[in-house]
């Protein structure tokens, strides 16, 4: 089954937790390690880190007209900071990978199954 692991992070907390270049490097090393493990296990379909929400633009089309808003829709403390797209046997496997994402230590990871559209495969 395919899952999207959505990584939510609190930028203020991240800045407080990783306040030296060494700590940031160690944090990144955690991601490189995870990437290698996911590839090794043949579970990796993709994954990216995202620029901060301050760079986001929200689009809505209403009455045929595009409306653009600076930033995300909701004022939440935790923001979508990146994602993994994986293919594993079942939810237990997906949860195991999610727990290995470094951001799960302070932020959280939402595990979402990818919808199977009948007749699509």
């Amino acid at each position: 089954m395919q899952y999207l692991l959505l990584i939510y992070d609190n930028p203020a907390e991240y800045a407080a937790n990783y306040d030296t270049p060494e700590k940031q490097q160690a944090h990144m090393a955690g991601y490189f390690q995870l990437n290698a493990e996911l590839k090794e296990a043949g579970a990796m379909l993709g994954g990216e880190a995202l620029e901060p929400v301050t760079t986001a633009t929200t689009v809505r089309v209403r009455g045929g007209e595009s409306l653009h808003t600076d930033g995300p829709f909701a004022e939440t403390r935790e923001h979508l900071g990146g994602f993994y797209f994986i293919d594993v046997e079942n939810l237990d496997e997906a949860l195991k990978w999610a727990a290995k994402i470094p951001a799960a230590q302070h932020g959280c990871v939402e595990v979402r199954p990818v919808m199977l559209i009948p007749g699509d495969k």
Binding site: M1, Y3, E89, N90, L91, D92, A94, V111, P113, M115
Partner: peptide
């Protein structure tokens, strides 16, 4: 069904 919760007794590590 949709989230893929397995139908099994979990493996030893879980």
């Amino acid at each position: 069904g949709k989230a893929g919760i397995p139908y099994r007794v979990p493996p030893d590590d879980l």
